[in-house]
Simulated assay, not measured.
Amino acid sequence: MLDLDFSGRISAVRATFSDIAAVLDLPKLEREIGELEEQAVAPGLWDDPEAAQRVTSGLSHRKSRVAKLRGVESRLDDLEVLIELAEEADDEASAEEARRELADLETLVGDLEVQTMLSGEYDERAAVITIRSGAGGDDATDFAEMLLRMYLRWAEQHDYPTKVLDTSYAEGAGIKSATFEVDAPYAFGTLSVEAGTHRLARISPFGSADKRQTSFAGVEVIPLLEEATEVEVPETDIRVDVYRSSGPGGQSVNTTDSAVRITHLPTGIVVSMQNEKSQIQNRAAAMRVLQTRLLLLQREEEAAKKKELAGSITASWGDQIRSYFLYGQQLVKDLRTGHESSQPDAVFDGDLDGFIAAGIRWRSLKKD
């Protein structure tokens, strides 16, 4: 006789899912989809490319969320039918399929539950992430490149579109810094818990003494704000430098001065872009990120906040949020939540969901 008494677990999943659907307000999402679909087919939509992008992006994000919720709902119904059929036929293969499906649904609903904790002012926005190497020489620049790949792999596994906006290569190994965008619903709220200093301890591949080397990299996460264009930046407040885009080892990958670096003189904020082919496109992208940062700074000052959303990141001892040990014990451990993994290779290959979920829960508890 098959042991398929999953009624308690299924009831728990359904109860959690009902709470999630209520918080996310499924009927409201579907109404908004209808409104955005009407706007998307309106004549002259693309006369204003920025407004058109907001409409199409908003429509895509809402459709994705509704599809995920409806998909869970359907899979729960199908699971109960599968269990019933497995019991009637006394079929172990179907029973095993039901066990796997229930475990998958428990994980999926758990992830959705974490998303309901993302209720910050900017949490639903796309994210712009900047990684900077810190103390540690070649190991630090190599570590920064490892983190860049880790986050891009994580986004790829979730089918989140990414766009590398700027990369500054080190003279030796790795990168000095990189900036990239993740365009997905709640990308900022999800990835903002990754902001801070990350520490790597390993036997350095760049030294001959086989000694343990500790290096650091800083991760900054800011929301990409559409309304950032409302921030006026006088030409007298910025310095614009243009240069040739370059790849590893300083090799030119562009024969024209298309890369752009904008320095905001009153605040010292610097934004560089070299991803686009033209100087005009790179300047527009750099201005959007600069305006976002200035808008955040302006709102934080008005609200008398003590700390910027991006955080104060020194990329050195004393303020690290996570440690990666690649010698001896082979461990990745988050110092805030205690969440850890004994498979650092998997983590560096994008297996971050456990760390991110633990971080969001930790942050939510801190607010309560």
Rank of each mutant, 00 (worst) to 15 (best):
A67C: 00
K68H: 14
L69A: 14
L69F: 12
G71E: 11
G71I: 07
V72C: 10
R75H: 08
R75W: 01
L76W: 10
D78F: 10
L79F: 11
L79P: 02
L79Q: 11
E80M: 09
L82G: 02
E84V: 01
A86G: 11
E87W: 02
E87F: 01
E88I: 08
A89L: 15
A89I: 04
D90I: 00
D90M: 00
A93G: 04
A93I: 07
A93N: 07
S94I: 00
A95H: 02
E96W: 00
E96D: 14
E97I: 01
E97N: 05
E97Q: 13
R99N: 02
R99L: 06
R99G: 01
R99A: 11
R99V: 08
R100V: 13
L102F: 09
L102R: 09
D104N: 14
D104M: 02
L105D: 03
L105I: 07
L105K: 01
E106R: 03
L108G: 06
V109W: 04
G110L: 13
D111E: 15
D111W: 03
L112M: 14
E113I: 00
Q115F: 13
T116I: 04
M117Y: 14
M117V: 00
M117I: 00
L118G: 04
G120T: 08
E121V: 12
E121W: 08
R125G: 01
A127L: 12
I129F: 09
I129Y: 07
T130K: 14
I131A: 13
S133V: 10
S133W: 03
G136T: 03
G136M: 03
G136A: 04
G136K: 04
G137M: 05
D139G: 01
D139M: 05
A140R: 02
A140Q: 07
T141S: 15
T141F: 02
D142L: 03
F143G: 03
F143W: 14
E145K: 05
E145R: 10
M146I: 11
M146R: 12
L147G: 07
R149T: 14
L152C: 13
R153H: 13
A155R: 05
A155Y: 06
E156C: 05
Q157I: 05
H158S: 03
D159S: 15
D159G: 06
D159K: 13
D159A: 13
P161V: 11
T162F: 12
T162K: 04
K163D: 12
K163N: 14
L165P: 00
D166S: 15
T167G: 03
T167W: 08
T167N: 06
Y169D: 08
E171H: 07
E171R: 10
G172D: 10
A173F: 06
I175N: 00
S177V: 07
A178K: 05
A178H: 11
F180V: 07
F180G: 03
F180D: 08
D183A: 15
P185K: 08
Y186S: 15
Y186V: 00
A187M: 09
A187H: 09
A187W: 02
F188N: 05
G189N: 08
T190Q: 15
L191C: 10
S192Q: 15
V193E: 02
G196E: 08
